[in-house]
Computed example of a mutant assay.
Amino acid sequence: MAQNLMMTMGFLEAVLSTLRSAHAQLAALAQKLRLPAGDKWLDEYMDESARLWKACQVMKAGLSSMENYCSAAADLASLLADPAQLSRLQIKRAISDCQMEMRFLDGRNRRLAETRLQTLCLNFDENHLLSSGSKLNEYSGFRGVLYAMRNVSTSLLVILLSGLVYCWPESSFSLRFHKEGSILGSGFMLSAATLHQRVINQLDSQPGILVYELQKVKLSTDELKMETARGRLEVESYNNKFGNLKSSFGDLQCGVESMIVQLDDFFDEIVEVREKLTDMCAHM
Rank of each mutant, 00 (worst) to 15 (best):
D251E: 15
R88T: 06
V256H: 02
L157M: 09
E223D: 14
C121Q: 06
L156V: 05
G243Y: 12
R88I: 05
G250R: 07
K179L: 08
L252I: 01
K60Q: 14
Y238W: 14
A37E: 10
C56M: 13
R116N: 08
D125S: 08
A192V: 04
K92H: 10
G250H: 14
D43C: 00
T18Q: 12
F266N: 07
S171Y: 14
E126A: 10
D265F: 06
G144H: 05
N151F: 09
K40F: 06
L156K: 13
A55V: 07
L33T: 03
V217G: 04
L129Q: 07
K216M: 15
R108S: 09
T228L: 04
E138R: 12
Q85W: 00
E269R: 12
R110K: 14
D97I: 00
K276C: 05
M100T: 11
K225E: 12
P207M: 06
S155W: 06
A192N: 10
S17Y: 07
S174M: 14
I95F: 05
M226Q: 15
L146G: 02
S174P: 14
L80W: 04
L79W: 00
I260V: 10
Y166D: 01
A77L: 07
A193M: 13
I91P: 00
A73K: 00
R176V: 15
H283L: 09
H23R: 02
Q99T: 05
P36H: 10
I209R: 01
E213Q: 15
S155Q: 10
R20M: 14
H128D: 07
V261D: 12
E275A: 09
N68H: 04
L224S: 06
H23V: 00
F173H: 15
N4R: 14
M259R: 08
Y212E: 15
G141P: 03
S162I: 07
L233H: 12
Q215T: 11
A72S: 09
A193T: 04
A192R: 02
C56Y: 01
A94G: 03
E223H: 13
L233S: 10
T8W: 07
D75F: 03
Q262A: 13
S220V: 10
A72L: 07
Q202E: 14
L35H: 05
Y212K: 12
C281T: 06
S64K: 11
S237W: 09
